[in-house]
Design a protein around this nucleic acid. Structure first.
Lengths: 138, 138
DNA sequence: TATAAAACCTATATAAAAGATAGGGTTATT
DNA sequence: AATAACCCTATCTTTTATATAGGTTTTATA
């Protein structure tokens, strides 16, 4: 399951996507809309900005805004940023690979092979669907 | 990511599947093979037995054994038993559904719709692949 | 130029979950 | 009768997730 952090990130991005007409959106607007703690959300938006998905403007009249085209924000990118690995096991993760302690030889591990299939099916959706797809459906 | 508990369950099932020729397998044999704490593993095997996947025999010469045909143990069953939901969000879980607190109307939630797709792709593998597929590849 | 409003940053506290351990009880085999 | 194994419940420890705190910096505008 995705953490709340990741889920909140998607909600925030959705909100920002819906309000692209206005220059900036306040953290508070988003936190009130979804009932998310202001400070918790602040950390999340900060990460999204550092990753180049959002821009921000300080001071009065400031706030956050989408810096990327929603079509260029695959869901996989958001998940990897906030959550970490998408794969169900560390030994089949493309971006956060770690060997399994229990496993002597990964190439002979049947579990490993099946989990690679699961990962690939997940990625088929998560790499190709973007923020734009979420916005389309709202 | 799957918890260690779930991963250990798969390892144990694999081990038991490989040793179907012998009547029973000791907890200790499995825990030593994979370096898993004996007591922790004990709890896992107990759950698998209660779920009707394993059988056990008490007393000297006892132990655990597979009670089901490996073809009849889909990976999804093991995950749901030890881990809980397979879906990435509670609001798209088939077996552990819960509404999202942030969401006013689920039917209008774009995130919900995309996550249903992810869930279905995961299930396509996890429902159809079984313990037998893992054993085949070892 | 003073003030208010907003993001920025780092650290810490709290809560929840995962992982592991303990210890005795029960049962079946030799 | 002894032993070896499962059975069960409870608790401890560690880790991770979630949330909060408090100040700093930047910007608009009155």
């Amino acid at each position: 399951m995705l953490s709340k952090k990741t889920k909140y990130a998607f909600h925030a991005l959705t909100y920002l996507g819906k309000h692209r007409d206005q220059k900036t959106v306040l953290i508070q607007d988003i936190s009130e809309e979804y009932g998310i703690s202001h400070k918790f959300l602040e950390n999340i938006l900060l990460e999204l900005r550092k990753a180049g998905i959002l821009g921000s403007k300080k001071g009065k009249g400031g706030g956050y805004y989408l810096i990327k085209d929603p079509n260029d924000v695959p869901l996989s990118k958001v998940i990897r940023l906030l959550e970490g690995p998408i794969a169900l096991l560390p030994c089949v993760s493309l971006n956060y690979y770690e060997p399994c302690a229990e496993c002597k030889d990964e190439t002979k591990c049947g579990l490993n092979k099946v989990m690679i299939q699961v990962r690939d099916e997940m990625l088929k959706v998560l790499e190709n669907k973007t923020l734009a797809d979420i916005l389309d459906k709202e």
